[in-house]
């Protein structure tokens, strides 16, 4: 029997629902302004560059780099029991926006700033998929 998923699940703001719906379809979507062309994340109603409310949710390339990362050596939440050490990385997408995620397919000691990564999708429950990243 599959182990019960005990990590916290996202509790999205209404503005973020399209991001999580796309993740369920294994797509990484971010907002793009129709007025000035700016890409942004995390989600909000108006473009942070020009305040236009006119935007599209576009599918990002899914490629980027590790801008910075931290390695947890201490357990903060029982959901990660037996999984320490683990890495939380700040990913800078090729489109510009940055988002936090985990890295898969690489040991924590091999992670480096500026390494190229690409998105993968982790279906953690039937309802929730987390975009994660792996070396490109």
């Amino acid at each position: 029997m599959a182990k019960e998923y005990t990590k916290p699940l996202p509790r999205p703001a209404p503005e973020s629902e399209p991001f999580w719906a796309a993740a369920r379809d294994h797509k990484l979507k971010i907002q793009k302004c129709r007025s000035c062309g700016n890409h942004w994340f995390p989600p909000s109603e108006h473009c942070p560059e020009c305040l236009s409310a006119d935007h599209d949710w576009i599918e990002a390339s899914g490629r980027g780099r590790v801008f910075s990362f931290v390695t947890y050596q201490r357990l903060y939440n029982k959901g990660w029991e037996g999984e320490v050490p683990y890495v939380v990385a700040l990913i800078e997408l090729d489109e510009g926006p940055r988002l936090l995620s985990n890295l898969t397919g690489i040991a924590p000691e091999n992670v480096a700033c500026d390494m190229a990564v690409k998105v993968v999708f982790d279906d953690v429950t039937p309802e929730v998929t987390l975009p994660k990243f792996t070396p490109a």
Binding site: P8, S68, V70, G79, V88, D114
Partner: peptide
């Protein structure tokens, strides 16, 4: 409740450690 805890981001040390790591780099 999103874009952090679900990836295991907890506590103030991590936030500041991102800066430390990038400064080292």
């Amino acid at each position: 409740q999103e874009f952090g805890p679900e990836y295991g981001l907890f506590g103030a040390p991590a936030m500041h450690a991102f800066g430390a790591r990038r400064h080292m780099h």
